[in-house]
Design a protein around this nucleic acid. Structure first.
Lengths: 246, 246
DNA sequence: CGCCTATTTGATAGCCGTCAACCGGAGTGG
DNA sequence: CCACTCCGGTTGACGGCTATCAAATAGGCG
């Protein structure tokens, strides 16, 4: 398979969940899609809407978020290239959260009908979709733990571990360095903290040598130390089944 | 269908997610199962295990929970009669959380093979399983918001609203009264608070007339007031599609 | 009646939110 | 080229919500 299809990362992700056959991969890579570029902070879905087609994040970062009464925002998941952004709408008609781009992003729009079709033609693909949704749910459970029962420093450490692990699978971590194009306010919205406290806490973590930062790129000199600090166990990411090339 | 099958509540719940045909309901109610009674706080699944069969909660209450490094526990979901407890293990091999009974409970154990079979025979049932998992994920997202961005009082108010709404569908709320057989420590584990603070906060809510309590039974004199306090919008429960009798 | 658990209440400490100000870089327009 | 603006990051002071520690009370079950 050529590596230039916008769906490559998506297929690679699915292949990490189940063992796709060559035909499965071909079928997925052959899905008709239209590309769409959006600016940073573009709203992709609003709570209560019924999205028409399914979106796959090709380039850039996005999040799901919900709002409390007082306007406080809570990010409930972060998404990297290759992540489907509304696979759940194959089965649910109404969006229960907002989806928003965090950076400039490229999207591949695939029709629900076409996705349903490939899922009907291949039980393995259907299972891959199911697993994708279930892994998202597992990550969400870990976030409840993160936000509910860990200190500010542990929350951030854990988030960094998770994102690094997920990015690594797409080759986006090089020698412990990776780029997280999130503002500190966004990091706070993901961890249930204020931007000010994110700033301070990252500063302390840097003082302690857990991380080093330059702008929004992060370097982790000692992964073991960071993971121990966070209590990070990648089990919940369900990556055990290593997929090969897409 | 007779109303005495242990699977009745389960089928009714699925029927609330999709429109099951009469044959679908008959197929589900005809699933072979073995019943099992467990004591309060019995562990049903442990993180890291690979459950053999699927469990449906027939009577009593249960929860999923995870532990932080320091031993702090976070309950990530609460379950009432009719809820499947490991439907996700039709697709995932490894449990990413613990499942534990909170009261004495009756379980219906169904083999993964049998469940897979009915899902293959009826696309509607397969969809119902998918929706069940997705609704659980939606509830989990709401919990992230709850724990991350709401005050202690709002968290408890929201939890009460959610549980009352879910219980109501099974006829377990009578004139604003319902029974929540959870200790205050468990309520704290679900909302990211300590038992002491749960106690105080419930006391203040009672002082303010939002709820009244006798032991572990709760009465809500004014639902609108409680929902306003919590910022409760039942959209995320995806109950729009009202199922009829099971 | 006695044990054990859950609930309740009090006192204290600390993490984190809030408010506010300042700084720095990127983009814009004169 | 420089001034201006804006947004994000940084730092400080202060307060409040909630955790922690501790002890007393109540309730369930043998």
């Amino acid at each position: 398979m050529t590596d230039i299809s916008p769906l490559t990362h998506f297929v690679r992700k699915l292949n990490g969940h189940v063992d796709l056959s060559d035909e499965d991969r071909a079928m997925l890579l052959g899905l008709p899609y239209s590309e769409r570029d959006v600016n940073a902070s573009a709203m992709l879905t609003r709570e209560g809407e019924a999205p028409g087609s399914c979106t796959i994040l090709v380039r850039g970062f996005a999040c799901r978020h919900k709002l409390a009464l007082n306007g406080n925002r809570q990010i409930v998941s972060l998404h990297i290239p290759g992540d489907p952004l509304d696979l759940q709408h194959l089965y649910l008609d109404c969006a229960d959260h907002n989806v928003q781009a965090l950076t400039r992003a490229s999207l591949a729009m695939v029709s629900r009908g076409d996705l349903r079709r490939v899922a009907q033609q291949s039980a393995t693909i259907a299972q891959a979709f199911a697993v994708s949704n279930l892994v998202e749910a597992s990550i969400c459970r870990e976030w409840v733990l993160n936000v509910g029962r860990r200190s500010a420093r542990q929350r951030l450490a854990h988030l960094l571990c998770e994102l690094a692990t997920r990015l690594e699978r797409h080759g986006l971590v090089i020698e412990g360095c990776f780029e997280l194009p999130f503002s500190q306010e966004q990091l706070g919205d993901a961890t249930g903290m204020t931007a000010v406290h994110v700033n301070r806490t990252l500063g302390f973590m840097e003082d302690d040598g857990l991380i080093s930062r330059k702008g929004r790129s992060y370097e982790v000199p000692n992964w073991t130390a960071l993971k121990d600090e966070a209590g990070f166990d990648p089990l919940y990411l369900h990556l055990n089944q290593q997929g090969a090339a897409a």
